[in-house]
Design a protein around this nucleic acid. Sequence first.
DNA 1: CGCTTACTTTGGTACGACCAAATATTATTT
DNA 2: AAATAATATTTGGTCGTACCAAAGTAAGCG
Lengths: 238, 238
Amino acid sequence: MSTDSNSRAADAVVSELETQIMSGQLQNSSPLPAERELMERFSASRTVIREAISSLSNRGLLESRPRFRPIVRKPDYLTVLNAAGSIVRHLVNEADGVKNLYMSRVFMERALVRQAATSATKADIMALKEALQANKEAIDNSEEFYRTDVAFHGVLYMIPRNPIFPAVHQGYTSWLAPQWDQMLRSPERNLVNYRAHKRILDAIIDRDPEEAEEALSAHLRAAWEYVRVTFDLEADND
Amino acid sequence: MSTDSNSRAADAVVSELETQIMSGQLQNSSPLPAERELMERFSASRTVIREAISSLSNRGLLESRPRFRPIVRKPDYLTVLNAAGSIVRHLVNEADGVKNLYMSRVFMERALVRQAATSATKADIMALKEALQANKEAIDNSEEFYRTDVAFHGVLYMIPRNPIFPAVHQGYTSWLAPQWDQMLRSPERNLVNYRAHKRILDAIIDRDPEEAEEALSAHLRAAWEYVRVTFDLEADND
DNA sequence: CGCTTACTTTGGTACGACCAAATATTATTT
DNA sequence: AAATAATATTTGGTCGTACCAAAGTAAGCG
């Protein structure tokens, strides 16, 4: 590879591999060719190849465990959120980090339930009902309740049928999980949350956006209050 | 650095540097120490140091131009979106990529104007008025109009006072820019858009969320129709 | 004091070597 | 013949050295 002053040799390799991954020429889930072979193919030194691999890996186009062949990963919206995750995890530890993230989630979900109330299909509502039912049945099992709780909210993100949304949900879930995990859980809490979910669903079924938004709002606000107390944060004045 | 089977030596360097950046020990905007010095400090080979730098750079904690010392960048929400950008740019080129991204923006902004209508402060409304005014004055200058257009929408993202939102706006702007740039612009179009903006602001001033959302919705839907025709996409059936 | 010039530092790339873990191959056992 | 163990080979991770060209710095000059 030539020494081109203001670009690295690795860049060329990166963009070539990038293209091949996106075009499917390098099949998703299949291992990348050996470094020493890529050397020949690109007539570049191992240094350069390895740098390229590192770059692709950091951006989520390759999934590499030490000592294993990197696996080709054709990126989707989840990959994006994933790549962002490493930084977000830092940011939530900064002042107001959790709060900002959580409040953006509230904002998002308020819009989601409103949307659901006006345009959920029968199938959507069925999915919500099922999620709620599973939620109900897990009231005595906090571990399981958490899962079904997440799943219930997850259905809301699926209603607009935009693949970006479920990815965002996944983002919220994994980024806020560290906080959530430290929260004490109990069947009593679960019951409260279940009822909140039910109220939301009822409003959606009634095609009442205002009530749905209010229900969601109250639900998440209460949950936040819970977080706030647990972590002894200053009161929020929004 | 020891050879630890299932972790790379670079990882240790990365997380150490990461900590130092987040803690401010490595000052933001200042250059990273020379690679050869880091070698000593971490008693690692240059290979490892460079790999660490590459990793941090890819994730936005360092900003490195070839042949220059990497600059320390304490990440913020913009950094996150930026890191995600490289992948998003690929995704928008996939089937429905632009549409999904754009529709999520519409969704977002519908919620934003609604929020604005119910809780914008006097200062917020003032800011919107100023943005609208600038918008108006730029009707004959498509270049400038575009800027003020973005700025007007940008004010909406600032109203919730959550630093995540402006970052998202920045994301939408830069990711959708490639499409936007190819759009033909004209004073006539600009006038239409200005009026749409005015209608939105009026609704916000009137504290009418429904009307605000509808106005925004109509505005962006019309813009989408414009994009659709330009790029000859199939009609959307949402 | 500003500007050109020579010197030093530093990032980018290439090679070659070695290790240990992963993988493929062959031999051995049941 | 299938399962298993021993062996050979490949491959990723790390190190060290070397060289170049551009960036940064100091010296010298007008």
